[in-house]
């Protein structure tokens, strides 16, 4: 008997065993290559950052050239907390998420009108303004020298950060996993479906009673909070915050990460982060100064070949592994 429509709707959100495999192996790598833990935590953080961008780009349809704004705000929030005696990591994450969300919420209203170009400029402009702000407020942020003297406490009061990055990775991976689950829940909900509708055809979305502005504000705020948490994770695990967190490069990089892995697909950001970070690690070993060139080349080739084709390729590979259907 053919499955009912109700069943078919629910099936689309089913957890597949290839997903369990993915997360279990992400845990297992720590025990196989314990010396690479710091690199792995970088990947997890980058993956979370790319996931946050995917929420607005892949699901909201907003092209942003300034997503580093929220990463940077989160990093500075957590960094400043740790510097001023409030070194509890989870408290830092919470505050970073809150501050980034507030800024995301406030600025989201600027994105509601206008074309892709206007949105591009507004997001870029906000990131640049925050960069200038952090640069000028050197007494607070440390300016170009970076924030000095962070003291990050143990996670949950139990697990201190070690030199090899083992705690850092487990901490970052756990946060990534939990936020991933939340994002997965959201994109498969009716709210998530309505986002797809807004992205696909905002005119019609309004005509079936969806408040287009309301949905975009909501997802942009959420995405900002996610990016803020990624920034806070980065600050806490490296015990370092510099102006670099707000740099244009970071906004461009995260876009590349997401596009490599696949836009509009929750695993895309994470897979992109793995490929990007490993590539960066490898290239930086060969040509430390000029690795930017290769990043540029990858971008150009990706567009010429068509990044959708790569995404479809990866997805069908995953599907073959998972038995049937693409994951997430």
């Amino acid at each position: 008997m053919a499955p009912s429509a109700h069943q078919m709707m629910l099936d689309q959100a089913r957890w597949r065993w290839s997903e369990s495999l993915f997360w279990l192996s992400s845990l297992a790598v720590l025990f196989v290559f314990p010396s690479k833990a710091l690199l792995f935590s970088q990947i997890a953080i980058m993956g979370l950052f790319a996931l946050s961008l995917d929420l607005i780009l892949g699901y909201g349809g907003i092209v942003s050239l300034g997503h580093a704004a929220f990463f940077g705000v989160g990093a500075y929030a957590a960094g400043l907390m740790a510097k001023h005696g409030m070194g509890d990591p989870l408290l830092g994450l919470g505050v970073a998420a809150f501050v980034a969300a507030v800024i995301g919420w406030l600025t989201s209203f600027l994105l509601l009108r206008g074309s892709d170009l206007t949105r591009l400029m507004v997001t870029l402009g906000i990131a640049l303004m925050l960069f200038e702000l952090a640069n000028r407020m050197a007494p607070i942020t440390g300016g170009a020298d970076g924030l000095q003297g962070m003291m990050v406490g143990p996670v949950l009061g139990l697990f201190s950060f070690d030199l090899f990055g083992k705690t850092a990775y487990l901490y970052a991976l756990t946060v990534l996993f939990l936020l991933f689950l939340l994002a997965r829940k959201i994109v498969h909900s009716t709210f998530g479906l309505s986002l797809r509708a807004v992205k696909g055809n905002a005119l019609r979305a309004g005509a079936i009673g969806i408040s287009v502005s309301g949905r975009l504000v909501a997802i942009y705020t959420l995405s900002a909070a996610f990016a803020g948490i990624a920034g806070a994770l980065s600050a806490q695990t490296t015990q370092l915050v510099s102006l670099d967190v707000l740099d244009f490069h970071r906004s461009a990089d995260v876009m590349l990460v997401l596009v490599i892995g696949g836009v509009g697909w929750l695993y895309g950001g994470i897979i992109g982060a793995i490929m990007f970070t490993l590539m960066q690690d490898w290239l930086a070993g060969i040509t430390p100064q000029y690795w930017e060139f290769w990043i540029g080349l990858v971008l150009v080739c990706l567009v010429l070949v068509g990044h959708d084709r790569i995404k479809t390729g990866v997805q069908s590979m995953v599907a073959r592994l998972g038995g049937k259907g693409g994951a997430a």
Partner: peptide, 13 residues
Amino acid sequence: VLFTIGIVFMAVA
């Protein structure tokens, strides 16, 4: 956007 950023990065490096 992606393509032209790529060109910029390549040119700069």
